[in-house]
Design a protein around this nucleic acid. Structure first.
Lengths: 200, 200, 200, 200
DNA sequence: GACTAAGCGAGACGGTACGTCGCGTCTTAAA
DNA sequence: TTTAAGACGCGACGTACCGTCTCGCTTAGTC
């Protein structure tokens, strides 16, 4: 998995050209308008070379999506669970709206086992781990009930974003994110009301 | 736009044939595999005739999606907000999973203004109205806070379903639906704790 | 080119455009350089339309070859068997050398059952029938032995032409044709030498 | 150009591997299916190495064709011109039918000056020399007319074989070869009928 | 026996054309 | 007029090989 590097100068060079061209095209015409032939033309790389690395258009698009997403990392300890969750939701929002890549790919991801598997593994699971960090801290602080389920929180935080993005088309505002986070905080607040960072 | 219906024998006949063929095809090969040419062949209707009624493949698919969705109606008063919300989520689940139509169409809906507009109008808004009915009753009963926002509740209920359906691929179980509903109930419970139907 | 054009449904019109373009291209670059994409570009017809009629490049080329060949017809009674055979060989020469189509197609014909079958049926058999006419008259006149075999004569007349064309590259001259015809006349001359049209 | 042979171990080894692989492939899939990449894969030799020795696929195929053909040698004196011609035709038949190489290469040979030149030099001329030997003996014996032209006889003997092989697809039988040889004998028989080996 | 130039394997690359698919438009003839 | 039937232009697909091009490793034959 590592000795590729020997012949990598050429390989890496064309790979870079392809990804750049593809990203640019997605920005301009969206994932739906993305075309292998277009990428080839724009990058100055032969169609064959693209197919050598990605099995098809969606595979390439996914690679770019992953590139985009890779930037997210767990929100650091800020001493305030609400703030941390908000930070997480904020970053997630940024990612899923950028370039319309997600919008354009959902169907393919949801439909193609191969893609959905990759998506879960490389994105879903990673995000969930981040949420876990935040929640664990929140439980420790007494902001959240000890039995708070990570997966559920993740879904409640992220689901509404996707819903707006994909279906209702309602705007993704800061106010909305706060509402969602507050709802979650409320839903998983310890019963005795001893939490330190409560919604005002 | 209106008087067609009276002497619609021909029009109606072919429309029915088209929709039936299209539905059957979606069942068999999914929305992704849906093809105008396939529908024409199967329904014995000319391609031209299909294009006369729906501007393209996605428009046709949306029509079918709407047909499916049309069945949902507001859950009747059961005297129990939790039960009513659960009922709503249950029906919604049934619809979005049926035939993989939604999975296959999301990208197109999210991406095409024309489709997303129709989707919002004919589905999102309708659902929201149903949720509103339930919530209004819930507030009246004292199960929910008076300032509970319909839109937010709707998103928190529906978002997680879509998220599982499209991305995480986690199964859509009854247990999950209960968790979601309970979280919502908790999040919007009146502060004084006087609600009648609380999660145990 | 004539009054056909009026009802020449689209099909006929595009077919004509394709054949013309293909012929022109063969003239310019040979059968080897013939390309469906080239034909499409030159004829202003879509690639698909070409494939709708001919299964592939060779099938199209064969069609053109047949068009060329179709012009040959049995040499008319000239009262002189030698002259008639010469005439036959002359016409054949003209056909097989025109445009290098034959040279470029032999391998495909010889190799593909589908093509060879068509070739035999539409060309070989037709030619043989022509030779038969000439030979029958020759036998009647007493120029040839009554047991002269048509197939053999045909092969002896045509074989050397193909051999020069394809392999030895020796020029196809009038002198050569005469030698071949004379050899055949001699080989199948009646034993008693009573033939009227003998080689000088 | 000559001293290579001394320290040729490596060169010779890979050349052998290539030729063997190519021959095997031709046997299996025909010349049409022959592929440099296939040869490389099968022989364990790098594509580059093949291109170093043969300018392209056809050049390689020709090399193999020549290898095959090389086996023919002039039929020895049997005291009977007819028998000797028959022997020649028989050997020729064997060669041109073996492996379908000839069928698959004709077009390329006929079309590419470079190949046709080599073919004429290394095969056509060689064969003609053999026929000359036989004819010279025949003339001496009085079986053939003194002015019998070698080239013409060669063409009359070989042409029909090629014609059947490539076009008419009629079977290459012993009977057919005899007919051809007899026709030639007859065509070039001395006028006085003094030939010793005549067809009965 | 060590050195250097050639030959070699591996395989990535730019390219051309293939034959296929499904789109949405356009034409024709019959009802 | 409306329809069924289906030909058409189009754009992209993903594939197959082509012949070229590095790039280090192997391997003689020379010193």
């Amino acid at each position: 998995m590592t000795s590729d590097d020997r012949h990598s100068s050429r390989r890496a060079r064309s790979e870079k050209a392809i990804l750049e061209a593809a990203s640019a095209l997605i920005d301009e015409v969206g994932v739906g308008g993305l075309t292998i032939e277009g990428v080839a033309a724009r990058s100055g790389v032969a169609k064959t070379t693209i197919y050598r690395r990605w099995r098809d258009k969606d595979d390439l698009a996914l690679a770019i999506l992953i590139e985009l997403t890779a930037e997210i990392s767990a929100p650091p300890d800020q001493g305030d669970t609400r703030k941390e969750l908000l930070k997480f939701v904020e970053t997630a929002t940024k990612v899923i709206t950028s370039g319309g890549v997600v919008s354009g790919l959902v169907s393919e991801i949801a439909t193609t086992p191969h893609l959905s598997h990759q998506y879960v593994e490389r994105i879903v699971d990673v995000r969930m781990a981040e949420v876990k960090t935040v929640i664990d801290r929140g439980i420790e602080r007494g902001d959240l009930r000890p039995d708070t389920e990570v997966r559920l929180v993740h879904e409640l935080l992220i689901g509404p974003l996707y819903y707006r993005l994909l279906f209702s088309k309602a705007p993704l505002t800061r106010r909305h994110r706060e509402q969602v986070v507050d709802a979650v905080m409320q839903a998983f607040a310890p019963e005795d009301g001893s939490a330190r960072s409560r919604r005002k």
